[in-house]
């Protein structure tokens, strides 16, 4: 391979990995809730949309960045508490499919509420990150992608630290491992759920801002979750490490596939290749690369 070709390959790969970090971020929102309640939270996309829409509308009303961020986070926390009270608590001990249907309903309610409050028009979101490519040893990298990946990585790292080093984090892991034993030993499931939904809300907020800045804040933003599904299949629904690695793989595969296989197979490959890879892995390893059964730390 010639140097220029190699540089181009690296450029595509890095671009893929960077957008992969953003997939990981969305996927982690799912993993947090799946680990503690065994339910795939269909409403994660709606939360993301709600967060981005609330934030951008507040900014348009003249609020400074951090005030809008804090208010939006407060709203998401209220949603977390509300969901625990109104949905999780009454449905405790129900089969996972019931909970899944509940989150499905929830996602339409949250989207509907967002629409009711903020309207349906498309908003542009400018986070003030300029998007001139920078040149690293002949490889061009998008500044926005770099910053976005950095923010996502910092978010993930702080979540991991939170769940690893705090008391509530320990309770989270205990509930994730064995809900019955956690209750038996005196842990309060409801508290853990509120914290987890709030954390998932924070993830949705950060992901919503990054994706919103890239794609524009509009209702199709909630479809970003469709990008997270193959990541979850790949990494395992219950593994944070899996979500990270899975996101990176999916991001890289998408970009490389688009550039190198796209011309051979015709366009549009980006929309399905992630699912093809996930499906192939599903056939070999149904629990995903990092999913149970295993005892390794998430």
């Amino acid at each position: 391979m010639e140097l220029a070709d190699f540089q181009f390959f690296v450029e595509v790969l890095v671009g893929g990995l960077l957008s992969g970090v953003m997939y990981s971020l969305v996927a982690i929102g799912f993993v947090l809730i799946y680990k503690t309640s065994g339910v795939l939270n269909f409403a994660q996309g709606a939360l993301l949309l709600f967060a981005a829409l609330t934030f951008v509308s507040l900014v348009e009303k003249g609020l400074p960045f951090w005030a809008a961020f804090a208010l939006t986070f407060a709203a998401l926390t209220l949603i977390g508490i509300g969901v625990e009270r109104a949905v999780l608590r009454p449905l405790v001990n129900q089969p996972p499919i019931t909970l899944f249907m509940a989150t499905l309903g929830l996602s339409y309610i949250i989207e509907g509420a967002a629409q009711l409050i903020w309207g349906t028009q498309v908003h542009a979101l400018d986070l003030g990150i300029d998007d001139t490519p920078i040149d690293v040893a002949g490889v061009f990298i998008s500044t926005f992608d770099l910053v976005a990946a950095g923010v996502a990585a910092a978010m993930v790292a702080s979540l991991l630290a939170f769940f690893r080093f705090t008391r509530i984090g320990l309770a989270f892991q205990a509930v994730a491992d064995d809900q019955f034993a956690a209750v038996a030993v005196g842990l309060r499931l409801h508290r853990v759920w509120v914290v987890v939904w709030t954390a998932a809300g924070l993830v949705a907020l950060v992901a919503g801002l990054l994706w919103g800045a890239r794609l524009g804040v509009q209702f199709s933003l909630s479809l970003v979750v469709l990008k997270a599904l193959p990541v979850l299949v790949l990494g395992g629904f219950d593994s944070i490490a899996g979500a990270i690695v899975g996101g990176l793989i999916i991001g890289a595969v998408e970009k490389l596939g688009e550039v190198y296989l796209g011309p051979l197979l015709g366009g549009g490959i980006e929309s399905w290749i992630a699912y093809a890879v996930a499906l192939a892995l599903l056939l070999v390893k149904p629990s995903g690369l990092f999913g149970r059964p295993s005892t390794e730390r998430a």
Binding site: L170, A171, D177, D178, A181, A184, G186, T295
Partner: peptide, 26 residues
């Protein structure tokens, strides 16, 4: 009043010491 359940049900991915600490979190 606390129950140590049938089948032990330790928190598998937590260390032994972390398991013990979970009992004191309440």
């Amino acid at each position: 009043l606390v129950l140590a359940p049938e089948g032990r049900r330790c928190f598998r991915s937590l260390t032994v010491e972390e398991n013990l600490i979970t009992g004191a979190l309440g």
